[in-house]
């Protein structure tokens, strides 16, 4: 554990609390892509199989993994059951097969060993890299977002961005790096660059998040 990873993980935790706070206080999941949230459940469910089939790492590791699994399922429940009328599927139109197909193929080619757990682990890494796309696509379509939604996205993007200095640090202290996680993590962070730019130049200056026409 190093400071970059710890802050990254805390940022990930914060993003989920911000999202829950947004849904509970506004009693609405307007502006949130159900498809992206469903992809995160898929990501956690396929990656954290190591809780059952892998070796024990640490109490921190187990608690965090259980939290991400539980909270992501709870968000789906809020969107599909409790606040269903506020969820508008007609603007959440990204085609999931464009993400699931390529990630499946990549996972079958690039993995640490050709076993179900490792293939699913690779799949989860590739899928996480692109899971935000339905959300960003929705943002693009509506052209604007509530401030709280942008705080959620910023915290979520910061999480993987902070994993990059963590990997650099680990490379120098441990002498190894994980090409699958690192390359996917770079792509994942890259997808946020446009968003980060508008977030910093507009939302943090107190302006509304609006995409240029």
């Amino acid at each position: 554990m190093n400071i970059f990873r710890l802050i990254g993980d805390l940022s990930h935790l914060a993003s989920i609390f911000i999202l829950l706070h947004k849904i509970q206080t506004t009693r609405s999941c307007r502006g949130i892509s159900f498809k992206t949230q469903a992809l995160y459940v898929t990501v956690f469910a396929t990656r954290y199989l190591d809780l059952i089939f892998g070796e024990f790492v640490s109490v921190y590791n187990v608690i965090m993994k259980l939290f991400f699994l539980g909270s992501s399922c709870y968000i789906l429940y809020l969107m599909k059951m409790k606040y269903k009328p506020t969820n508008d599927p007609s603007i959440d139109t990204f085609r999931l097969e464009y993400l699931l197909g390529p990630c499946t193929v990549l996972a079958l080619i690039f993995n640490f060993s050709f076993t179900p757990v490792e293939i699913l682990w690779s799949f989860s890494i590739f899928l996480e890299a692109v899971a935000i796309l339905p959300q960003l696509f929705m943002l693009q379509r509506t052209g604007e977002a509530e401030a709280i939604t942008t705080h959620y996205l910023a915290a979520l993007g910061a999480y993987r961005a902070l994993y990059i200095p963590n990997w650099i640090y680990r490379y120098y202290t441990e002498g190894s790096w994980d090409p699958i996680a690192v390359l996917a993590g770079l792509v994942q962070t890259g997808l946020y660059l446009d968003f980060f730019y508008i977030y910093v130049t507009k939302v943090l200056q107190g302006q509304k998040f609006e995409l240029p026409a």
Binding site: G54, S113, W121, W177, A181
Partner: peptide
């Protein structure tokens, strides 16, 4: 890196 090692990250 062995297959098990990358499971320590989230």
């Amino acid at each position: 890196q062995t297959p098990a090692e990358h499971h320590d990250e989230l």
